Amino acid sequence: MNEEAPFKGFESLSELGEFGLIDQIAGLFGKGCVEDTIGIGDDCAVLPYKDGQSLLITTDMLIEDRHFRHSWISAEDLGYKSLAVNLSDISAMGGKPLYAFLSIGLPDDLTLDWVERFFRGTRELSETNGVKLLGGDTTKSPGPMVINYTVLGVMDEDSVLWRSSAKPGDQIAVLGKLGESGAGLKLLIENKSSYSSSEQAMIKSHSRPQLYVEESQFLASNSAVHAMIDLSDGIQSDAGHIAKKSGVTLQVDADRIPITSDLKQVCESYNWDSLELALSSGEDYGLLFTFDEANAGRLSDEFKQKFNIELTIIGEVKDGSPELTLLKDGDAFDIGKKGFDHFRSEKLERSDSSDPSG
């Protein structure tokens, strides 16, 4: 990028897009501002720490009516989720989360009961994962609520799972209930008075996502695993990030994408495309990673024995242009939709029934 004319050739943020904006900023500042650091361009910034370890730092923001509506999510679940999205970034690199800092802008019409329940939800997740809330900042917001966490984690410096480390010949695997969060969001938009058990499962996946903190640390400790990313924006976007950073083609077989029976049932009821949701909807917070094909059997067996979870292999890494290619029935195809982009995707409009008192 020409540092004397950053953003040249673009007329708006919507044209540039979220990830284009990140690329432009990274080009202006470089990988990091301090020697031996890795900054913009991965799930976390990585700094030298001590005794052969690296310090991981991530930050993520949730804005009312962009990421959530009060009428759609309980105070406890919002407290839980707002921390979860940051812990997921630490997990994406295989790290152990340790400390959190919260900056939050609150409208003054919130009840103290709502605020207490929000922090009880945060505490539940922090205690489960051994994370300590050490401070931050609070302020009155004249508009929507703004929640911003910064989380620090640690891991062995030789075990960091970069987006840029996928190798030709690697297998591609996923963890998580793909597409369920996207289905949960669509159900909330439907604004029904009651939901079936399968529909409730979708909404729970959206409001209180399952994390893979211990599982990610196990994967990072295994030399067969090369690259990893969390599925926050959908496979189409997130697999594309690994392809771009690693300079390889990620070839994903759509016929091997895991789709839960609950998601299939809900999609059949509403005539939704379950495969489209599994590939393009965000906020699943599962993991996508690549690993050495020669170790596929051993890694799958060890993972199943330790966590009682089956690894699902969905494709392979190939030499080629840095992009994601999708196959269905052996032929290339395009579902048309892309993953979530903050500057291109539609916002959540404020609901008339929104109740900030919780």
Rank of each mutant, 00 (worst) to 15 (best):
G320L: 11
K132V: 12
L47W: 14
S165G: 07
L277N: 04
N271Q: 14
G32F: 07
P144W: 09
S159R: 14
D292P: 04
E323K: 15
F119I: 02
S71D: 04
K140D: 03
S197I: 00
H206V: 00
G39M: 07
G27E: 08
Y212T: 12
S345N: 04
S261V: 01
L219R: 09
G135R: 13
F68K: 01
G297N: 09
K8I: 14
K192Y: 01
Y80G: 10
V225C: 05
D273E: 12
G95Y: 09
D60V: 03
S181V: 03
L133C: 03
G20M: 10
M1V: 11
I63F: 02
S193H: 10
F7Y: 12
S197V: 01
V146A: 00
P144Y: 09
K186T: 08
D51K: 13
S261W: 07
L231R: 10
G52T: 08
G358N: 08
L56C: 02
S141W: 08
L185K: 14
C267T: 13
D329C: 04
E310C: 02
W162G: 00
R66F: 05
M145N: 03
H206P: 01
L56Q: 07
T150D: 10
S82P: 03
S280C: 15
D51H: 12
V252G: 08
S164P: 02
E180P: 01
L231T: 01
E35N: 06
A26V: 05
S274F: 10
D255T: 13
E76L: 02
Q53W: 00
Q217E: 12
G182D: 02
K328A: 04
S198N: 15
L21M: 12
D65W: 08
S280F: 06
M61R: 14
L47C: 12
C33T: 05
K177D: 13
D284G: 13
L56W: 00
A45W: 09
V266M: 09
F19H: 10
L324A: 03
F119N: 02
K167P: 03
D284H: 15
D137E: 11
R350Y: 03
Q265N: 14
S88N: 06
D108F: 10
L311Q: 09
V146C: 01
F291Q: 04
F101T: 06
E276G: 08
P6R: 05
G135K: 12
G330W: 01
N191S: 09
Y149P: 09
S194R: 06
K50M: 13
S12D: 13
E302M: 05
I172P: 03
S300L: 06
K186A: 14
L231C: 05
A220L: 05
M228T: 09
D238C: 09
L13K: 15
F343D: 03
V34C: 13
Q24N: 07
L28C: 10
E76G: 02
N86S: 13
Y99P: 02
I104H: 06
K192H: 02
Q210E: 10
L187H: 08
P356R: 15
T312H: 15
P97D: 05
G52H: 06
M145H: 05
T249H: 14
